[in-house]
């Protein structure tokens, strides 16, 4: 799903900024100006808080509030849902995703777009940066955008909020969570 970003590819994307990548993780996490999301959930299973914030920022770009229907990614906590979905995923998929999100976060600096990471960009700049990825000259960057979009869609359109908005009446048998809840009662 996520394009494989091996060390060589990663460094190719990070030419001249290796030190930033190495030490970037130590920088304080900026609040994503684009996203409506609040703090990271305390029980993240797979993603780091920074990776969560990066994904939340991307998700709000891919599925913003408003338009044809009001609900957007931040209303249902897409990044947290993706984190939950990744439990049990192949570790190589998770590694690819983490690398992809790191590249996304530090991409504004690495690609010469801006002097801040994605989560610290003002909304217009963050939107423009993320939109620019679809026409990047780097194939894996374009594919990363497509793959993250699919992941966000999977999370968002698995929720009842989204189902209501698109006229989908949902499954006709109880889900695992509902079954457990019913049994608990």
């Amino acid at each position: 799903m996520i394009p494989e970003i091996d060390r060589r590819t990663f460094l190719r994307g990070a030419t001249g900024a290796g030190a930033l990548l190495v030490f970037g993780g130590a920088l304080p996490l900026g609040a994503c100006a684009l996203t409506q999301a609040s703090d990271p959930p305390p029980d993240l299973a797979v993603l780091s808080p920074r990776a969560w914030a990066t994904l939340a920022c991307f998700a709000d770009h891919a599925i913003p509030r408003g338009g044809a229907f009001e609900a957007g990614a931040s209303d249902v906590g897409v990044a947290g849902l993706v984190d939950g979905w990744l439990v049990g995923a192949d570790s190589r998929l998770v590694t690819d995703l983490r690398r992809g999100l790191a590249l996304l976060e530090w991409g504004p600096l690495l690609l010469g777009f801006a002097a801040r990471p994605l989560t610290a960009l003002p909304p217009e700049s963050a939107g423009a940066y993320l939109a620019s990825l679809t026409t990047s000259r780097l194939g894996f960057v374009r594919q990363l955008h497509a793959a993250l979009s699919e992941l966000c869609m999977l999370a968002f359109y698995s929720t009842r909020s989204a189902w209501r908005a698109i006229g989908y009446d949902g499954p006709i048998v109880l889900g695992l969570a509902e079954s457990v809840e019913l049994e608990r009662r």
Partner: peptide
């Protein structure tokens, strides 16, 4: 389902939502 269909629409943002609003 909605997930599979959403993955097929080659758009993003509100443009994508415009399509998904016609899902039914």
């Amino acid at each position: 389902g909605p997930v599979q269909t959403a993955g097929l629409v080659g758009a993003s943002g509100r443009d994508h939502k415009r399509w998904m609003a016609r899902f039914a």
